[in-house]
Design a protein around this nucleic acid. Sequence first.
DNA 1: AAGAATTCGCTTGTGTACAATTCAATTTTA
DNA 2: TAAAATTGAATTGTACACAAGCGAATTCTT
Lengths: 152, 152
Amino acid sequence: MTSDPIDDPLRLDDQLCFAVYAAAQAFNRLYRPLLARLGLTYPQYLVLLVLWEQDGLSLGAIGDRLGLDSGTLTPLLRRLEGLGLVRRRRDRGDERRLLVGLTPRGAALRHEVEAVPPLVLQAVACSDGELAELRRALWALRGRLLAAAAPF
Amino acid sequence: MTSDPIDDPLRLDDQLCFAVYAAAQAFNRLYRPLLARLGLTYPQYLVLLVLWEQDGLSLGAIGDRLGLDSGTLTPLLRRLEGLGLVRRRRDRGDERRLLVGLTPRGAALRHEVEAVPPLVLQAVACSDGELAELRRALWALRGRLLAAAAPF
DNA sequence: AAGAATTCGCTTGTGTACAATTCAATTTTA
DNA sequence: TAAAATTGAATTGTACACAAGCGAATTCTT
């Protein structure tokens, strides 16, 4: 006899990873049309959130904040520069470092983008408490996953 | 005066989307080296989970299960076929449909892969109850996000 | 100060993701 | 049944995501 499908460790619907994967997919599908109006992709939006909090960071610092490496950020930042939203320049004190700063257009875009989170929050349709708890659980999960991934 | 940073609706650390994005990233980083040993990527692994549950599905049916479209699955399935894990053939009754079936090697790979979920569960380090609750919350969230995304 | 090791970003190559288009096969409608 | 509409994959083009390797700039050692 094959094992009870309920006990199958490979059951797709039991995989937490798939639930997270599918939720990220769904967020992307919600954000895509909202951000496309502003000419942005979701990862570009994340980079701008970082810069709106602290302008003039290096590529590496942005990568640390978002968990992205230079292979992802180099072309992404080039596109943001092409859109006229950021300026890229070398650190005069350390020519290896690429500093990224908002242009006036990039800084001003913040006001347009402020309309987005309320729409998303409405879609999430969660109490503040539930939302905070889910966020906490996900960050804790991420911490444990990365800790376990490091050894390999 | 600018608003209190605590109340800023654009604060990166308050965004549920970012928590989900970062958790998905972390899962990928854990799975990547585990699956690389078997020659698989994470989305390829998901396709195999689907086929191990029900063999001989069409590309479209696999896409419905995983939320992926033909632009993603066509090349992915070609690679799985290249690895000798699946066979692609047209439905004799409806030549538009591409049926995907496991090869003996693809079916057998299941046994190797069964070692993976225990390692991941250990990394997740969650009680069964917490895990089930988190999964439930994420699927509910996904449902609300997709419902909200549809209108746009 | 010279050599070694490290850091930082860039590049290349592989593999998703997804929109938009195309095309053939099928189904519906007139 | 012929025309119209729909469906299912494949293709094209854009944009992440990340490993691996490179080269220049900096820091550490001696």
